[in-house]
């Protein structure tokens, strides 16, 4: 057997071990993340908070500003995604109603151009 073969196999084995260790055993830990990578249930709960506040405040602009933490996605779309998830996962009817109310308000809301809108 040529001498380089065991060396090559050892190198491949080391590479594989390094990948397994770096991806599986001790992967990079993220901190200081942005809300757009939150798990869908957390996102939905945040939208629910905004919806709860909206029911009293009745200020779609403020609600849209709060939803802007998720990035440049239209706030109505964010609310819609949350509503879909909440419906699929059988959120209580009251909560569904709150999110729906917010979703409808944001769909009808037209941001004023020229101002700081999300």
């Amino acid at each position: 057997m040529p001498r380089w073969i065991p060396i090559f196999i050892a190198a491949l084995l080391g590479l594989a071990l390094g990948l397994v260790y770096g991806w599986r055993i001790a992967p990079v830990q993220y901190t200081d993340i942005t809300p757009d990578v939150l798990r869908i249930d957390y996102r939905t709960d945040y939208v629910l908070m905004v919806a709860e506040a909206y029911r009293v405040e009745e200020d779609p602009m403020l609600a849209a500003q709060r939803l802007a933490v998720f990035g440049s996605e239209p706030p109505a779309l964010i609310a819609e995604e949350a509503y879909d998830y909440a419906r699929q996962t059988s959120y209580p009817a009251d909560d569904l109603s709150l999110i729906q109310e917010l979703m409808v308000a944001l769909q009808a809301w037209q941001p004023i151009l020229g101002t700081n809108q999300p």
């Binding site: 060396i7 090559f8 050892a10 190198a11 491949l12 084995l13 080391g14 590479l15 594989a16 071990l17 390094g18 990948l19 397994v20 260790y21 770096g22 991806w23 992967p27 990079v28 993220y30 901190t31 200081d32 993340i33 942005t34 809300p35 990578v37 939150l38 798990r39 869908i40 957390y42």
Partner: peptide, 30 residues
């Protein structure tokens, strides 16, 4: 060769193509 391979694999997994953070929890928010 094993050590060098391990080092290269680790560099690839941690630096070049680290795992991406999705489905994160609020406690790791900025």
């Amino acid at each position: 060769a094993l050590l060098v391979g391990f080092g290269i694999g680790l560099a690839y997994a941690w630096v070049i193509l680290p795992v991406q953070s999705v489905d994160a929890q609020p406690r790791v928010l900025r």
